[in-house]
Design a protein around this nucleic acid. Structure first.
Lengths: 225, 225
DNA sequence: TCTGAAATATGACCGTTGTCAGTAATTGAG
DNA sequence: CTCAATTACTGACAACGGTCATATTTCAGA
């Protein structure tokens, strides 16, 4: 599983602010976890007793709305620390986490993290900054949901996927999502998501092969209102 | 203006975790600020050089969408610390703040807050918890925007206003907002907001007197889908 | 008290989006 | 490779919500 003190992933998250000694201590008590595509990592309302440091893979964080539909709030990727909000606030999780492809992560027990938070101000400050940025992102998403059309939101998630997760050998978006997932990210009905993707296809902005999507005209997507 | 160390407002926010010495130091360098209804406190993209501790009044935090419409992201009230996200993340503000009624606040310079953040772990941890809760709230709003109807969202803001800001002597909601503000909170066109309020009035769930709104059937509002 | 600008209200119209129903394609287990 | 089950797709239709046009009311300032 490797040692935290020589792990490169931590450079992507707040763990980089820990001292060598703290990392060695964490390394000793962490456990490795693997999840397969579609597996539930945790569900809304659960109590977490640690955070997940994501080594590989992507998962979606969803919240069940009162109308019975899931809404994807955030995509979590390599380097992210999953579960830190709940730990810090000492609350049950407000979101469910479900693997979108095979995932590999390290699980760090709550006691260890909380101990470091209490004793290492650099770490606390780094977590705080991180959370401040998450808050900004969340507020931006809120405005997007409230003000932009479904088509525009779909274009944005396609570009987001392109920019953040990249392409496979054949030029398709690396992250393969079901139409239902797209709908749940965009906040619309599955049929509407399908319809809009078909429309984008007719307009020559994207092409598809099964569930896989290729962006044919990135600039065109940018101009969608 | 009073002294921070004997100010009761701080019990509502993270400043309660500061020591008596720290409070005295803050008290010495803080300045009082007043804003009238409608005044701009700061605008999206500005650099803040401190935080505002709200003693009285309410303001809206808005973000300009690409479609040119303002979206209200949050209402900020007595006891809240305005601007802490920007300060902590060391970024320009992502939101504008505009007074909804006459406001009274204390302005605490950035250097003082950052100094306390660096030196008092209890304070940092408290700010962190606070931010974690803001993040949860923001994520919940995101789901609301994505999944619920305009009518439902309107009902929710009316109930929110009732629960958090209370009523005046005559039983009207204390916070008086323009129809445009309601539209901007709910994320819809002003005409739609007006139409929905008229509809609620016809259904006997609310009554109005000028801009003022009275909730006639709280339970009825709860049941709106 | 009067008056004009701003805010509120309402109607008409149309594009967008959700729902229901049914068909086609894809995928994964065996 | 085959089959069953899931997922993707399409059409029809209605409800929702945005825009524009046009009253009507409210309210601050003369």
């Amino acid at each position: 599983m490797g040692k935290c003190e020589s792990c490169i992933i931590r450079e992507f998250n707040s763990l980089k602010s820990l001292t060598r000694e703290e990392l060695i201590r964490i390394s000793a008590c962490k456990t490795g976890k693997r999840y397969k595509k579609g597996e539930i990592i945790f569900e809304e309302g659960e109590s977490l007793n640690g955070v997940y440091c994501i080594r590989d893979g992507v998962c979606k964080l969803t919240k069940l709305s009162e109308n019975g539909k899931d809404q994807v709030v955030k995509l979590v990727v390599k380097g992210d620390l999953l579960g830190k909000r709940s730990l810090v606030a000492d609350q049950k999780t407000n979101l469910s986490a479900i693997a979108l492809n095979d995932m590999e992560m390290c699980f760090i027990p709550k006691s260890e993290i909380m101990n470091d938070l209490a004793k290492n101000p650099n770490f606390t400050m780094d977590v705080l900054k991180d959370m401040a940025n998450e808050l900004r992102t969340s507020e931006e998403s809120l405005v997007t949901m409230a003000q932009k059309s479904v088509k525009r939101r779909m274009a944005e998630i396609l570009m987001y996927s392109h920019d953040n997760f990249g392409l496979d050998e054949e030029g398709f978006l690396s992250i393969v999502l079901s139409r239902e997932d797209y709908a749940s990210i965009v906040g619309t009905a599955t049929e509407s998501a399908i319809r809009i993707l078909s429309q984008l296809k007719k307009e020559g902005l994207i092409s598809t092969h099964g569930k896989r999507i290729k962006i044919e005209d990135y600039t065109g997507l940018k101009w969608i209102e």
